[in-house]
Design a protein around this nucleic acid. Sequence first.
DNA 1: CATCTCCAAGAATACGTTCA
DNA 2: TGAACGTATTCTTGGAGATG
Length: 202
Amino acid sequence: MAIEAPRSMPTGQRNVVRSNDSASLWNCTLSPGWTRSEVQVLRQALIKLGIGNWMKIIESECLPGKTIAQMNLQTQRMLGQQSTAEFNGLHVDALQIGQINEMRQGPEIRRKNNCIVNTGGKLTREEVERRRKEHRAKFEVAEDVWTSIVLPRPDNPLVLLDRKREELKSLAKELDDVVARIAAIEQMESLDQVTGTKRPRE
DNA sequence: CATCTCCAAGAATACGTTCA
DNA sequence: TGAACGTATTCTTGGAGATG
């Protein structure tokens, strides 16, 4: 099974040191990232369970390993705005709202990494409530639609175990290949010593 | 009072560009 | 060609407020 690359890394493999990476900018720490399919699962979970209901999403186990902070941030990216309070509890399609936010222009619109950020100070409770009502009327998905969404369940642990065993097998085979190649090179070098052959180093 | 959530700021990452 | 630096994007952290 191919592992999908996170969107943050469009090309190449993760954490492969390339020749032009300076050591000072590299510490080899893995970062989790989001795959396209995980984003789709989160999108469905937000429609079904409501934006901001992070504990419900965690309990649904549809996105194992994801923290509330990670989901909140990914939601901000999908919505195209940092403040999510005005969508709290709403069964809406975050990507649909994101497309609308993408088009928004004006002197009051300030973006950070393509996300509209809040510039006018913290919103009052009344303002948040007013916006929520507006969004509910405009964007909320019909109840029969969101109740019928089925979120993916995490993989069966036994299936995961099988997958890991397969990975282990493939790594063991790779190791065998490398050992065989080293042995072949060493054999060739000792033969050259016996016959006195000199060949250029690669 | 503990827990959850929002928000801002800054650190880390991945890749591109420049230049010796 | 590769080291150093630049830029865009993503992730982490922590303070503060809301809620039960």
